[in-house]
Simulated assay, not measured.
Amino acid sequence: MLRLGRRGLWLGLAAAAAAAARLMGWWSPRADFRLFIPEELARYRGRPGDPGLYLALLGRVYDVSSGRRHYEPGAHYSGFAGRDASRAFVTGDYSEGGLVDDVSDLSFSEMLTLQSWLSFYEKNYEFIGRVTGRFYGEDGLPTPELTQAEAMITKGVEANKQELKEKQKFPPCNAEWSSTRGSRFWCSQRSGGVSRDWIGVPRKLFKPGAKEPHCVCVRTTGPPSDQTPDDPAHRNRGDLDHPNLEEYTGCPPLAITCCVPL
């Protein structure tokens, strides 16, 4: 019943797994890297007379000379040059106080964003070496803080897998709002960006910890998602009886479109 959706799900999980595998490889020892102290790396800001244009991310140093127009003095991302400003890649805080390498309080999803930036630099720029300090010791080996960051990224990948599964089960509704008519929610075979062979009906989904419910599309036939098709106990109502769901007031139970007036 979920044939098309499952294909998209497994493609997403495969991509996440591949990213995690690449990440693990980045921490492994390499004989061809150079060690920098922060003061030495600060000389690589692309200024006249500087020996180059480098930046660091989670302690890994990349030569970004080929992207000079983005990182040279006066460019939008010039604050990243000559230092490890890992935190700012996620927060967008380009002040001196924000261009730092402390990522200890970032969330799982924010660490996944940081991992995406690592993928970008690994693919597009030359790896030069490591900067000693927060993420690598004077011997060039990972510190406990780097191990913690790696664990956070791994947990983020797992959380992302769970989110993908949840989205396949309860795809988000299409939605629009008007100051005169209120809200309209509707379902289709591609609502929420999830391709599937069923349409579903709009329902409020209450998630633990969330302040407000959000609209999802719910299957109306077959067994619940947590049961097998040949389970005789199901009532051929899909996921309609899930305890975290609630109907929209005034909407027909099986209507694929629901209008909520002001």
Rank of each mutant, 00 (worst) to 15 (best):
R203F: 04
D226W: 11
T147L: 07
G222R: 05
P142F: 03
R190A: 15
K204N: 04
P144W: 10
P202D: 07
G193N: 02
G182K: 03
A151C: 05
G156K: 14
A175H: 06
P223L: 14
D226Q: 11
G156D: 04
G209R: 01
R184G: 15
V194E: 04
N160T: 06
N160E: 06
M152T: 05
P172A: 10
C215A: 11
P223R: 04
A151D: 04
I153E: 01
G192V: 02
F185A: 15
T143S: 11
S178P: 03
V218C: 03
E163W: 12
G192D: 03
S225L: 14
L146D: 01
N160S: 13
R190P: 10
T180P: 01
P224F: 13
S188C: 08
Q189N: 12
P202E: 02
Q162V: 15
A149V: 13
N174A: 14
V216W: 08
T221I: 10
C215G: 09
S225K: 01
R196G: 12
A175Y: 03
L205F: 06
I199Y: 02
E150W: 02
G192F: 03
R190I: 14
S188K: 02
A159V: 07
P223C: 12
G140K: 05
R203H: 12
A151V: 00
W177P: 12
P202I: 07
V201N: 09
E176S: 15
P144D: 00
E158M: 08
V157D: 00
P224T: 06
T154H: 04
K169N: 03
K204D: 09
Q168G: 15
N160D: 13
R181F: 03
A151T: 08
Q148G: 11
W198P: 11
P172S: 10
E212Q: 06
P172D: 13
T143P: 09
E158C: 07
K204I: 00
W186Y: 08
H214Y: 08
C217H: 00
R196Y: 09
E145N: 09
F170N: 13
L141D: 06
I199S: 06
S191K: 00
K167C: 15
T154Y: 05
P172H: 09
C215D: 05
K207D: 09
E163Y: 08
R190H: 13
M152K: 11
W177E: 10
K165I: 13
S183D: 15
V216M: 04
E212A: 15
I153S: 00
C217V: 07
